[in-house]
């Protein structure tokens, strides 16, 4: 390699290294802002701070969904199986909203520790399978529990 080429290689290497370092520093500094949602544990540990409106994400606790008679209001519990937050929401739920599945809600805490959601989105997980496989897994799980 000629000296000029080595110099250019060094130049582009140094520029790239500088950008990598600044990217790492910037992403670490904005770590909290880059979180799309907070988990119930993060909420319990006070990571949310004084943010009035924020996103709460986790799993919809099994057997926790209660629909109010004659209205679109629904109450459920969002959990990460360490901490839980009760949530109430009035509106249309996404089709994939289910107990035991992921959910992300946007809203605010009321003073009693109840989360009042304005928006509910279903968070899909990374598992893909045909219905028969899902059924077989479900049966296997039930057999294990007996």
């Amino acid at each position: 390699m000629t000296p000029t080429r080595r110099r250019r290689l060094l130049l582009i290497g140094v520029v790239l290294a500088g950008v990598v370092v600044s990217a790492v520093l910037a992403l670490r500094a904005f770590q909290l802002n880059l979180q799309y949602f907070f988990s119930p544990t993060q909420v319990a540990e006070g990571e949310v701070g004084d943010a009035r409106a924020f996103r709460l994400g986790g799993m919809v606790l099994e057997d926790s969904v209660e629909r109010a008679e004659g209205s679109l209001t629904v109450n459920f519990i969002v959990t990460d199986y360490l901490h839980s937050v009760p949530v109430s929401y009035t509106g249309v739920l996404p089709d994939l909203f289910q107990e035991g599945k992921g959910v992300v809600t946007l809203g605010r805490m009321d003073p009693s520790g109840h989360f009042v959601a304005e928006e509910v989105l279903a968070k899909h997980d990374e598992n893909y399978m045909p219905p028969e496989v899902a059924e077989a897994l479900e049966q296997a799980r039930e057999r294990e529990q007996l």
């Binding site: 979180q35 799309y36 949602f37 988990s39 968070k123 899909h124 997980d125 893909y128 399978m129 045909p130």
Partner: peptide, 24 residues
Amino acid sequence: IWWNSLHQGPTISRLDGPTITTDM
């Protein structure tokens, strides 16, 4: 992986193998 996101995690490039059945 680094942040909580609405988008799900990786399905194929996982250490414990893909979480999608072979026919899919």
